[in-house]
Simulated assay, not measured.
Amino acid sequence: MPGRGAQPPPVLRVEGLGVRYGALVALDDVSWEVSAGEILGIIGPNGAGKSSCYDATTNMATRSGRVWLDGQEVTAVPPHRLAALGLKRAFQQNAFFTTLTVLDNMVAVLAREAGTGLLPSLFMPWREASRRAALEDEAAEILERFGVPRAMHGLRPGNIPYGSQRMLSIALAFGRGARVLMLDEPAAGLGGADMARLAELLRGLREAGVALVVIEHHMDLIMSVADRIFVLEQGRALATGRPQEIQSDPRVLEAYLGHAA
């Protein structure tokens, strides 16, 4: 884990990322990296380029720059293949199949990762019953790991509490596993016990060796769980360092709070 001995080599490294929308420069020469078992927080004021950074990293936006995953350059790899290689992301808005149960949502993800189409995974003929049962067992275990209890598995996502919906979205993004998991404001709309459960989940994923990249506006959360913080301002890198360093950096205070310390 970072902070104990030498820093391990990065699992994900981006170099010189740039994104333009016409004359608007959304991202300008941005570089960062994250290692296995590390949480990198990305923060910045609204419009700083955080979501553009995610889109650029996962090749969901036209961009300049280069990206490496496990030491292999993946700059030109399309988003679906990046996911297959272990670079996965959850979006700011919850994303699931609203007409399927919570469990069937997870089954569909597992079936897709195994190369089984969505419809066959959900409407298998009787000869596929054992494979379906195995997928359901695996799906239930993953959901419980991500804080979605079995009592909710037979419900549709819209009928479970909002905090559990957020956990479900993260579970669906993670699937059978990820080398790098990128989360875009996972704490949006959460508070109290739900926030505590999210923090516990993030720490558990870190302990399991996952590299986490987290965009977050909830400063108490990100400062308590992140190993390092990367700060963006107006599409450019402003600062990077440990949470305590970032909290006392006058450049960050000026950009984020509107005044220097």
Results as ranks from 00 to 15, higher is better:
1 M>Y: 10
1 M>A: 14
2 P>L: 15
2 P>A: 15
7 Q>L: 15
9 P>K: 11
15 E>M: 05
15 E>I: 04
16 G>N: 13
20 R>I: 02
21 Y>W: 12
21 Y>I: 12
24 L>F: 15
25 V>Q: 13
26 A>H: 06
26 A>P: 10
26 A>F: 07
27 L>G: 05
30 V>S: 00
31 S>W: 07
33 E>H: 14
34 V>H: 01
35 S>Y: 02
41 G>M: 08
43 I>H: 01
45 P>C: 08
45 P>N: 12
46 N>Y: 08
49 G>Y: 07
52 S>E: 09
56 A>V: 04
57 T>Q: 05
59 N>A: 14
59 N>P: 03
60 M>T: 10
66 R>V: 13
68 W>G: 02
69 L>S: 09
69 L>I: 11
70 D>M: 12
71 G>K: 12
75 T>K: 07
83 A>M: 09
87 L>F: 05
89 R>Y: 07
95 A>I: 08
98 T>V: 10
99 T>N: 13
99 T>F: 11
101 T>N: 05
103 L>I: 01
114 A>H: 11
114 A>P: 07
118 L>N: 06
119 L>Q: 13
127 R>K: 12
127 R>G: 04
129 A>D: 04
129 A>Q: 14
131 R>K: 13
134 A>K: 11
139 A>Q: 03
140 A>W: 07
148 V>K: 01
151 A>T: 14
151 A>E: 15
157 P>F: 01
163 G>H: 02
165 Q>I: 02
166 R>N: 09
168 L>V: 04
169 S>H: 09
169 S>Y: 01
174 F>L: 11
175 G>Q: 05
180 V>P: 00
182 M>P: 03
185 E>G: 12
186 P>F: 00
188 A>P: 10
192 G>H: 05
193 A>T: 10
193 A>V: 14
196 A>K: 12
196 A>R: 12
201 L>T: 04
207 E>F: 06
208 A>I: 03
210 V>M: 06
211 A>E: 05
213 V>I: 15
219 M>D: 03
222 I>V: 15
224 S>I: 05
228 R>L: 10
230 F>T: 04
231 V>T: 01
232 L>D: 00
235 G>F: 03
237 A>S: 15
238 L>H: 02
244 Q>V: 12
245 E>D: 14
250 P>I: 08
250 P>C: 10
252 V>Q: 02
252 V>H: 01
255 A>L: 07
256 Y>T: 07
258 G>A: 10
